[in-house]
Simulated scan of single mutants.
Amino acid sequence: MVKKSENIIVGISVGDLNGIGAEVILKTFEDSRMFELCTPVVFANAKIISFLRKNLNIEIHINGIDNLSQVVSGKFNVLNVWKEGVNLEHGKLDDNVGKYAIKSFVEATKALKNGLIDVLVTAPINKYNIQSDEFKFPGHTDYLDKELDGNALMLMVHDKLRVGLLTDHIPVNEVASKISKELIEEKVETIKNTLIKDFKIAKPKIAVLGLNPHSGDNGVIGKEDEEVVKPTLKKLFDNGTMVFGPYSSDSFFGSNMYQNFDAVLAMYHDQGLIPFKTLSFGKGVNYTAGLEKIRTSPDHGTAFEIAGKGMANHDSFKEALYLALDVFANRNEYKELTENPLKVSQN
């Protein structure tokens, strides 16, 4: 059964409470029309969110709940993940506040995993102050990859620009050693399936960037592109995947070549995210492709320097919400089309 829009439950992890996470969430739902699209549930503490709402002078009614069975459609629901107060100081890097960011995220992930929420949108965390004996992950994506079925891939999205990462949060000096035929095949397949099921692109075209300057110049500047990347892409292409490259990354975006493809696979974090954020910062979305469940996030961080000042732009968070809802609808449509093929009547 397809859910009505207003009954789609969007779980929201609150992010770092000393950052702009709560502000962009509240600003998004200050527009009452958003409740026609979904029902939000923020995983946090109702008193803290109410305190932040008042400080930011945002007009919205908060419906505090202690259990997800108490969610009310058309309301801004806040699930009390913890009861105690938390000392907040906008813009401060605080290990204790980081613990609450992870409490929110872990509980929201659990609800997503158990089908109690339909999609998850995560507000920004600080990757330093979330580290603990209980949580040893570089960020959201790595934890979700462990907890949910599938193979996670960071896919940055803005309109028709989609940039995926072969490797994400690892040091640059480890990138070359991580690149293998198996990893390339896995990530290209993940992007291909995502474009088909989540973005309704029947025959996706995928570009792959080279690792080395000028994609190695036929082996003169590094051997990886010639010995690993090229033969792997040829094998995938020969097997029916429309994948092309490796392309020299220094000119690929500046020459607008990316506009000829449905997605681009970059070899490492900055190779993909620097051009992506240059082209779309503030409106892009971080989508975790390849998982059984849907998670999106804005393309910015905690922005400590403007936290608590009412200056945060909520466009990227709103786009993250829209994308989560679009993917939810597209997946349901794909499932319906593939599970219920037209039956041929027999005379």
Rank of each mutant, 00 (worst) to 15 (best):
I9N: 04
G11D: 06
V14T: 03
I20L: 05
A22H: 01
E23H: 01
I25M: 02
I25W: 00
T28K: 09
F29V: 04
E30K: 01
L37S: 12
V41K: 02
I49S: 00
L52V: 13
R53H: 02
R53Q: 10
K54H: 03
I60N: 00
H61D: 15
I62W: 02
D66A: 12
L68S: 05
S69P: 04
G74F: 00
V81G: 03
V86I: 13
N87S: 15
L88S: 04
L88I: 13
L93V: 15
N96W: 10
G98Q: 04
K99H: 09
I102S: 12
K103C: 12
A108L: 00
L120T: 06
L120Y: 05
T122K: 06
A123N: 08
A123R: 10
P124A: 07
K127W: 04
S132L: 08
D133A: 14
E134S: 14
E134N: 13
E134K: 13
F135D: 03
K136M: 09
F137H: 02
P138G: 05
D145V: 04
E147A: 11
N151I: 15
L153M: 15
H158N: 15
D159V: 06
K160I: 01
L166A: 09
L166R: 01
I170E: 11
I170S: 12
P171M: 02
V172G: 10
E174T: 14
V175S: 10
L183I: 13
E185S: 14
V188L: 03
E189L: 12
T190G: 06
T190Y: 01
T190L: 01
T194K: 05
L195R: 01
I196D: 05
D198S: 07
D198T: 03
F199W: 09
K200F: 00
K200G: 05
I201Q: 04
A202Y: 06
K203G: 10
K205T: 08
K205P: 05
V208M: 02
V208R: 05
S215N: 09
S215G: 08
V220W: 08
K223N: 14
K223I: 06
D225Y: 00
P231N: 11
P231V: 06
K234R: 12
K235A: 08
N239E: 14
G240I: 09
V243R: 07
P246M: 01
S248Y: 01
S249W: 05
N256W: 09
L265E: 06
M267W: 00
H269F: 03
Q271P: 04
T278D: 09
L279H: 03
V285H: 10
V285P: 10
N286Y: 09
N286K: 03
Y287C: 04
L291M: 12
R295D: 02
R295F: 03
T296K: 07
S297L: 07
P298A: 07
H300R: 02
A303V: 02
F304A: 10
F304W: 08
A307I: 08
G308V: 02
N313A: 12
H314V: 08
K318S: 13
L321Q: 07
D326M: 12
F328D: 04
P341F: 10
L342N: 12
S345V: 15
Q346H: 15
N347V: 14
